[in-house]
Design a protein around this nucleic acid. Structure first.
Length: 268
DNA sequence: ATGACTTCTAGTAGAAGA
């Protein structure tokens, strides 16, 4: 089963590019982020015509996640548990039913900039960086609950985390950024230290492998990128991993997203 | 260089992204 994640940066602006990529890459499942659309305006028929079941968790203007699947989806839930006051659409779960069922978590982790710190160095409560770290703590709690079930699951999407210096062309430029600060990377490590496998690094140790290039300052032409779109696999899911790749060439096309798809192949 | 691009919503600028 081929499962992909793709931050499309707006479904209206990316419809053609997404459609073309689906036709070529033929993922069984696509986890989408930043659909920037309410559920009613998502062009679901266009994907249903390609054979996908479409489940969205949308929001006006910003954020929004979705799952497209050629295999049946069950037990769909929307929103990351742990804070009923959080209205941002960044999390969707479903169980994809193949030979073995896999619980899918599609996520759009908060960016976290600008970083605002109190005098004691802790994030200012109510600020964007505090929201990011709090969101990651809720994600940790959700991962612990799923691990306790001992089922195959994965958490994939735009993490807005640069895990290591080798995941950025210019790591020094990101030192104080919410994507690379020690607190952000530590929270990502805490997830991995639960026993989750980062699929790309399990298959490829090469530096300079990126999934995002800024629109500005010729970042793509200079290969000035960062790797921030990730798959974390539960132990039972990691057993099935046979491949993980980044569809880098997509970034050089007409009217691209600033992210490219990342995908795993699972033998399930 | 509190910038460059691109998206969204709104309605001619502004917010947000990373």
């Amino acid at each position: 089963m081929k499962i992909a994640t793709f931050n499309i940066n707006g479904i209206k602006a990316r419809f053609q590019a997404l459609s073309d990529w689906l036709d070529e890459a033929q993922p069984d499942v696509a986890l989408l982020q930043e659909i920037k659309s309410v559920d009613e305006n998502f062009p679901r028929e266009m994907f249903e015509d390609k054979g996908y079941q479409v489940e969205t968790h949308g929001q006006k203007s910003f954020n929004g996640v979705a799952i497209l699947s050629k295999l049946p989806l069950e037990d769909i839930t929307r929103g990351l548990p742990g804070d009923d006051s959080d209205e941002q659409a960044r999390w969707i779960e479903a169980t994809v039913v193949g030979k073995q069922a896999i619980r899918l978590c599609g996520l759009y982790l908060p960016n976290g900039n600008p970083v605002e710190l109190s005098a004691d160095g802790t994030p200012v409560p109510g600020g964007k960086y505090a929201y990011k770290l709090g969101w990651m703590q809720r994600m940790q709690t959700r991962a612990e609950a799923l691990l306790a079930e001992e089922i195959p699951f994965l958490m994939a999407g735009d993490y807005n985390i640069i895990p290591q210096a080798e995941d950025a062309k210019k790591p020094e430029a990101w030192r104080d950024d919410a994507l690379f600060r020690p607190e952000s990377r530590a929270a990502f490590r805490r997830l991995m230290n639960l026993g989750l496998t980062e699929a790309f690094r399990a298959r490829n140790r090469a530096p300079g492998q990126y999934s995002f290039w800024d629109y500005q300052a010729g970042a793509w032409n200079r290969d000035n990128g960062i790797r921030i779109d990730h798959f974390l696999l539960s132990p039972q899911c990691a057993d099935m991993l046979t491949d993980c790749q980044i569809d880098k060439q997509i970034r050089g096309r007409e009217k691209p997203s600033d992210h490219v798809p990342v995908w795993v192949e699972l033998d399930n």
